[in-house]
Design a protein around this nucleic acid. Structure first.
Lengths: 225, 225
DNA sequence: TTCAGAATACTCTGACTCTGATATTCGGAG
DNA sequence: CTCCGAATATCAGAGTCAGAGTATTCTGAA
């Protein structure tokens, strides 16, 4: 990659905080939590402090002062440097303008869908449907409360995520329908493979044979990144 | 977490391969590539071998034999154990049925949208729109070629991803529209903040003040996972 | 008044993971 | 005969993370 010396998104958050005003790490953490940035950026102390270190070594931030109140642990206030500001803007520009390939757990799961039987698939995916549904209900109520207090500009990321969940839910519903009705291409093969394992958790022998039929996708998608 | 001893999705792929039939690691890699699983699961040799090791230490797979053809490097063939099969099924069940919180780069970017000026935001997001558009065009042609060769069952994960990209694209278009027209809640504040920095890359002084207005989201979303 | 518990501000450890570089051998194209 | 790329790995270094530990002060209820 060599792309960016520091690639942890948490570093972006640190830069953004310091761009606003100098702070010590713990304060960054609480600031982010207050603003719910920890919904969109994974935050934990271990990482925070090491990221701050790395940023300092890289010259993107520097320490402004080190103080101590009473006999609490010492705290170090950092400020962003010019090259830090540059990095922030540049990085942000890249994130916003250039889609990158990311791997989600669910995608991984989906790609092994044929491993479970059609019946089980329906059960599992239906469970997901109802969980997503609950999640979305919750989110919608958050949205309405949010809208009264802060402008939409400051919660686009939340809106974005909600809209993705929504899309997933709709897609899942039709997928489940297609599996149930046998309308999904490959259903016959799929049922055939799993015809033996009524109780799948004891499938000792079946070993499934060649799961992927002929399997070879001729033309691979190529162009990415 | 303590959730799963091994949490790397690559391990899932290894289990799935071995569930089909015993193989050596290199063969797993090529099998996955052939089937385009590497689109949905990050695959690289370094990780593959360490994951295989970890699986073996955990007793989920075991070595079947070690052979050598000619004077090529020795290769070790693994097979899945009973507890490996159990883990595979259980894990897959969880992945399919339970949504988990994941953090994407773009989301991180979005959450700092106010850092760039409205004009720049429009420029950056428009760039993303056109890149997504190209990507989607490519994908659609892949879909049609795929459909002739392999049943939909074996490419749900690809379909899923495509549909997500599609949803993102649509959303982005309206977002960009809203920013341009000033219909996005908070636009005035946003423009005000950036009124000084015509050339944003030299914004020395501005330091933005308090970006987040009053900032506090009262009710945080809570309920997750 | 007292004392549990939250908040403050970090530090550390052990494990996992990723990236990228580095071998070595073979078969086939030119 | 030569060079390239596929076959089959290994390894070092760095980044990352979850979670627990530490030491002190403040707050609110009993």
């Amino acid at each position: 990659m060599a792309r960016r010396k520091i690639s942890n998104p948490l570093a972006l958050a640190v830069l953004a905080c310091l761009y606003e005003r100098p702070m010590h790490p713990y304060e960054m953490a609480t600031t982010m939590r207050t603003r719910n940035k920890d919904e969109s950026i994974k935050l934990n102390y271990g990482s925070l402090y090491s990221v701050v270190d790395a940023l300092q070594r890289g010259g993107l931030i520097e320490t402004q002062e080190t103080t101590r109140q009473g006999r609490r642990p010492e705290r170090t206030v950092y400020r962003v440097t010019d090259s830090g500001v540059h990095e922030l803007l540049d990085w942000l520009g890249e994130l916003l303008s250039t889609p990158v390939k990311e791997y989600t757990q669910f995608e991984a799961g989906l790609s092994f869908l044929p491993v479970v039987s059609p019946a089980e698939a329906v059960a599992l995916l239906s469970a997901r449907v109802s969980r997503l549904d609950m999640e979305l209900t919750g989110r919608r109520s958050v949205h309405s409360r949010l809208d009264e207090h802060i402008p939409r500009l400051f919660s686009v990321e939340y809106e974005y995520k909600t809209m993705l969940l929504d899309a997933e839910l709709a897609w899942l519903r039709t997928l489940v329908g297609d599996i149930e009705s046998g309308a999904l291409g490959g259903s016959e093969t799929w049922s055939a493979i799993h015809s033996g394992d009524a109780d799948i958790h004891h499938a000792k022998e079946g070993q499934v044979g060649t799961l992927e039929a002929n399997g070879h996708r001729q033309e691979q998608p190529k162009g990415h990144r």
